[in-house]
């Protein structure tokens, strides 16, 4: 089969999976509400906590600015939360995709088809990407009118940092989906991983407040560079030269996590064929 035909077939399969996932997604109205309402509610607690800590006249803001480089704590929190929500949705969607197919009994039927199994997972990634983009757009519009959130820096550079972050997150998601297929439990794994990222990546606070050993751990997580880089560009107007280190780190993370994700998927695929665990739930 020629390479072009392979690519066309692969894209066709990804599209079929994505359409199927979106149709099913639409058939659970409660999920649509959760996806649109939750992101709007989520920042409220952190923003009001920050407002309380800043004092009635914002007296403590200079202390916050000394650590974070900005007095715009609302924007600071929103960038952190948006990136974390993206990670959270990716882990939930990709982790629960294989698992729910396994529980429904459709995973075996899908694997009986003469298609790349990784292509099927990538199709689920596409539907998740679309849902997350809608979610992100709605959130950014709402944040602008509720909290006055604005991107003041270079949009293109912000988008580049975001795309590199998304690639690293999807690599993690694919590895995560493989792991869930193996351990057969998504919830505890999602809580653990997103909890680690929440604590170590400076989601709502500057990394400078963390103890030394925690800062070392945070350097090993891609979201640290995403959040910090996007804050610098979007909120403080930093340029390409200022975030080159972030871009290089995120590109390296994207390559490593995507390769790790594909290797983990292939390993899990071989393992379930050997153990017969594909249909177990």
């Amino acid at each position: 089969m020629g390479i072009l035909k392979r690519v066309r077939d692969g894209l066709g399969i990804m599209l079929a999976v994505a359409v199927k996932e979106l149709i099913q997604f639409r058939r659970y109205p409660s999920w649509v509400i959760a996806v649109f309402i939750w992101p709007l509610l989520f920042p409220i607690m952190s923003v009001f906590s920050a407002r309380a800590l800043a004092g009635p006249e914002g007296q403590a803001l200079h202390a916050f600015a000394a650590l974070s480089g900005t007095t715009d704590y609302t924007g600071y929190i929103i960038v952190g939360l948006v990136m974390w929500m993206w990670l959270n949705m990716t882990l939930w969607t990709l982790g629960s995709f294989m698992r729910s197919e396994q529980i429904r009994g459709t995973l075996e039927a899908t694997w009986l088809c003469p298609v790349s199994r990784l292509g099927v997972l990538l199709g689920a990634t596409c539907s998740q990407l679309l849902i997350s983009m809608v979610n992100l757009t709605v959130s950014l519009i709402a944040f602008r009118y509720i909290w006055g959130f604005r991107i003041v820096g270079d949009l293109g550079l912000t988008a580049l940092l975001f795309i590199l972050s998304a690639a690293a997150v999807y690599g993690l998601g694919i590895a995560f989906a493989s792991l869930v297929m193996w351990v057969k439990e998504a919830n505890a794994m999602v809580f653990l991983v997103r909890g680690l990222f929440m604590v170590f990546c400076g989601m709502t606070y500057p990394l400078a407040v963390l103890p030394g050993w925690m800062r070392i751990v945070s350097r090993g997580l891609p979201l640290t560079y995403s959040i910090d880089g996007i804050r610098a560009v979007a909120l403080a107007g930093a340029g390409l030269a200022d975030v080159m280190g972030h871009i290089a780190a995120l590109a390296a993370f994207a390559v490593v996590t995507l390769v790790a994700g594909f290797v983990a998927f292939r390993w899990t695929e071989r393992r379930v064929l050997r153990t017969g665990a594909l249909g177990h739930h």
């Binding site: 099913q24 429904r104 009994g105 459709t106 075996e108 039927a109």
Partner: peptide, 12 residues
């Protein structure tokens, strides 16, 4: 066709 009625998507 494997055993049972679970090899198709019930929400489609």
């Amino acid at each position: 066709v494997l055993t049972g009625e679970r090899s198709v998507y019930w929400k489609l």
